[in-house]
Design a protein around this nucleic acid. Structure first.
Length: 327
DNA sequence: TCGGCCCTGGGG
DNA sequence: CCCCAGGGCCGA
């Protein structure tokens, strides 16, 4: 369900609701998530305080100040030089935390397809499929709900461990990607563009909706091979990724089914989709009927006129479901 | 590199 | 009833 814009929206919603809050308890359901919350983590989280809420790719990271009373960092003598949090180009601090011992804990959350991560009053009626609940010190709760259970909530005693793991598995954030890197990554493979864009090790955060929308904006067919692209094509695609994700964040992401932000409010970018979910509807640029085929195992939407140039891997799937013969 | 699979719910 | 769904991992 959630791609980068939706995850970013959750993070931005949660940040003011969680900053500085203490966690006073943890509950969990008996149903296991893909990576289950372990009961022994309860004691570690109980009494911790939220320091920051961040995003890396489609992952939500919540920095905690541990329940064990660590010596507080000495007050900085740099005065007003404090960094603004939340807008740095890297989600990770560039250096070691001053005065830190490198053992600060962290919660790492993935929303899978149907995950919802919200702060609500503790008195709010619990919905179905509630899996992990963190009680807060202000009579609210941070609730993780996920009907399909493809997501996860995990605890790391040392946030550097979690960050190292993500750094090894994820490519760069899709804002300000190095053009040379992107050209080489795209042109160096015979895979199709859809598969390339969904590959989190090349660029982190793009999913099925924004892969289709980025291809449309770049006027590139999702079935095109990476190696068939010119350098200019790659540059257009890179800029399309950045622009569509930026616009989607401004609209709080796309609410297709059950996505909600961290405060329970949905998104509006679905109203600006040019191709995703618009099979047989007119292309906003040329009015040709939008088509749908299967690439990288995922439904892929495109305009056959605007995006039909260049060499393409043969359609791996039927454009349309074969019409059923009715008796 | 790809299909299958993990799950539940909703829609045709 | 069947098929589909915003993701990612695993094994052929």
């Amino acid at each position: 369900m959630p791609e980068l814009p939706e995850v970013e929206t959750v993070v931005r919603d949660l940040r003011p609701l969680l900053a500085g809050r203490g966690i006073t308890g943890v509950r969990q359901s008996k149903h296991k998530l893909r990576r289950p919350w372990k009961p022994q983590w309860n004691a570690a989280v109980n009494g911790a305080r939220v320091e920051a809420v961040r995003r890396r790719g489609k992952w939500i990271l919540i920095d905690l100040a541990g329940a064990e009373p660590n010596p507080p960092p000495p007050p900085s003598l740099k005065g007003r030089g404090e960094k603004r949090s939340g807008n740095s180009s890297s989600p990770f601090p560039s250096g070691k935390r001053a005065g830190g011992l490198g053992s600060s804990p962290l919660l790492r959350v993935h929303l899978g397809m149907t995950g919802q991560f919200t702060v609500v009053p503790a008195s709010a009626a619990p919905p179905d499929h509630l899996h992990v609940v963190f009680a807060l010190d202000n009579a609210h709760e941070l609730r993780y709900r996920d009907p399909r259970r493809f997501g996860s909530v995990e605890y790391f005693a040392n946030r550097a461990d979690a960050e190292a793991e993500l750094s090894a598995e994820l490519g760069p954030e899709p804002f300000g990607i190095d053009a040379t890197y992107f050209r080489a990554a795209v042109r160096g493979t015979a895979r199709n563009l859809k598969a390339i864009l969904l590959d989190q090790t090349i660029v982190a955060g793009v999913g099925n909706i924004y892969a289709d929308e980025a291809c449309f904006r770049a006027k590139l067919h999702p079935g095109r091979t990476g190696k068939s692209l010119s350098a200019a094509d790659c540059d257009r695609l890179r800029e399309a990724i950045e622009s569509v994700l930026t616009r989607a964040i401004e609209s709080r992401g796309s609410t297709i089914r059950d996505y909600v932000g961290g405060s329970g409010l949905g998104g509006g970018f679905q109203n600006e989709h040019a191709v995703y979910g618009r099979t047989d509807q007119p292309c906003p640029a040329c009015a040709a009927a939008i088509e749908c085929a299967r690439y990288a195992g995922r439904a892929s939407h495109y305009c056959p006129r605007c995006q039909d140039s260049g060499v393409r891997i043969r359609d791996s799937g039927k454009k349309k479901k074969q019409q059923r013969a009715s008796s």
